[in-house]
């Protein structure tokens, strides 16, 4: 028996409702992080070499990987904290390395980016330990990953806040991260 028009309409409505509910997660706004995520500093492992018996390191899950709001907050912090001063307004790089390309000197994992911000790196990257809350650092991590289009497309924004010479977030191609063997640029011009 063919399904009646009412059944079909109901199916379509259910499908739309399911899609709409899934979309809600994208804009979830959490103002106070739960303690485990807020304490992620101690979980970051930068090297597989370590003393004693080998321990299986568990990758830190990025709390904001599907959160458009966090990416937007990260973008705001990126300008306010003057990351743009060295890395360029859209991550194109200037006296600091570019962030929108595929090259990652200190690792492309969310946890690697987190510790790069918190600990600082040689030749100019300051340590933000104690200056930004872990929440804010994670928001920055979300935006930095967004610059090379690491997030799912529907999480990324289709509009930029300012005039920009590059395509908007949704229409940029993902840069597959590759580790860079180049030493970070020194103070030489």
């Amino acid at each position: 028996m063919r399904p009646g028009i009412a059944t079909r309409a109901l199916t379509v409505m259910l499908a739309v409702a399911t899609l709409a509910t899934a979309g809600c997660k994208r804009e979830e706004r959490r103002f106070r992080e739960v303690p485990p995520a807020a304490d992620a500093t101690t979980n970051v492992v930068m090297s597989t070499l370590q003393p004693g018996p080998s321990v299986v390191s568990v990758a830190t899950e990025h709390p904001y990987d599907k959160d458009a709001f966090a990416i937007a907050q990260g973008q705001r912090l990126y300008v306010q904290m003057n990351c743009a001063g060295c890395h360029g307004l859209a991550g194109g790089g200037s006296i600091g390395p570019p962030l929108m390309d595929a090259k990652w000197i200190y690792g492309s994992d969310p946890a690697n980016i987190f510790s790069t911000i918190v600990e600082g790196r040689p030749n100019g990257m300051p340590s933000w330990k104690g200056k930004l809350s872990n929440d804010q650092v994670w928001q920055l991590v979300a935006y930095i990953r967004d610059m090379s289009a690491q997030h799912r497309k529907d999480v990324r924004t289709s509009r930029t806040d300012d005039m920009a010479a590059i395509p908007d977030d949704q229409n940029r191609n993902r840069q597959t991260p590759r580790p860079s063997t180049n030493a970070p640029s020194s103070t030489k011009p």
């Binding site: 706004r29 103002f31 106070r32 930004l132 809350s133 929440d135 804010q136």
Partner: peptide, 15 residues
Amino acid sequence: LDPQRIKPGAMMPPN
């Protein structure tokens, strides 16, 4: 200590 209790969403983080 916690601006997010008084103004949730404000730009100042909890300290």
